[in-house]
Amino acid sequence: MNVYVCIKHVPDTAAKITIIDNNRIDEKVTFIINPYDENAIEAASGLKRHITDAEIIAVTVGKASAEATLRSALAMGADRGILIRCERNPDSLVTARAIKAAIERDGKPDIIFAGNESIDSEGFQTPFRLGVAFNFPVASNVVSFKLEDRRVTVESKMNAGEMAVIRMPLPCIVGAGKALNQPRYPTLPDIMKARKKPIQTIDLDRLNLPTAAGSIQIDKLRPAVDQRHAKIIEGPPEAAVTELIRLLKEETRVI
């Protein structure tokens, strides 16, 4: 059984982002595996515990530096990795085409795991584009997952207070939500072993991807200004609350 996992190399959540040339960021910051993709790897590793012939292949589209994130995925349970190397980060239309082409060259997928969202570009869409490219069903923001007799049952949030139970046949694509599982962090031996696992590198340009009808390009990037002038309301709780309610009603009119 071939289990592919899409992972993305993203700036650390706590990294200070500096903009250069008005449209990109200084990448001299710590990068991590996209947090949702950790849940994707964990779900794939969970399968491997039951299905002995399962092989987990981590796939990423990124710069040469993304190899570090592939190594993290290998330490978390993937057997080998594929790095689709490019000089500039492509949009999700191209990314999905690239992942599809690389997987197709590699083998026949039974299931593809991805994350619900990448925390840098906040796109929420690559798994669905991959689904159309392969003509596989997709469920994303998945919070529970079960595989039985080559049928997958997942739960995904549909509204406040409501959860949809979705069933789809293999091959299919599953986008992991944060509540899906608790990723286990690799041990030192896991990390040592990951160093020896194979990573294959393919140049994006070599994949001869079909051109997309649409595109999404970053034109400008500016820092979000969000420094507020905190007004500390002094006094005992009763008085402070009275003043707070007055301010909310009269000064900002939000209640």
């Binding site: 700036p11 959540t13 982002i17 903009i19 960021i25 925390i119 840098d120 570009s121 906040e122 997309a212 009808a213 649409g214 595109s215 999404i216 390009q217 970053i218 034109d219 400008k220 990037l221 500016r222 820092p223 979000a224 969000d226």
Partner: peptide, 16 residues
């Protein structure tokens, strides 16, 4: 917003 709200990006879209 991008990068968890640290930047605001202006995107240009192409297509039909």
């Amino acid at each position: 917003s991008q990068f968890s709200g640290k930047t605001i990006a202006t995107f240009k879209l192409g297509g039909t």
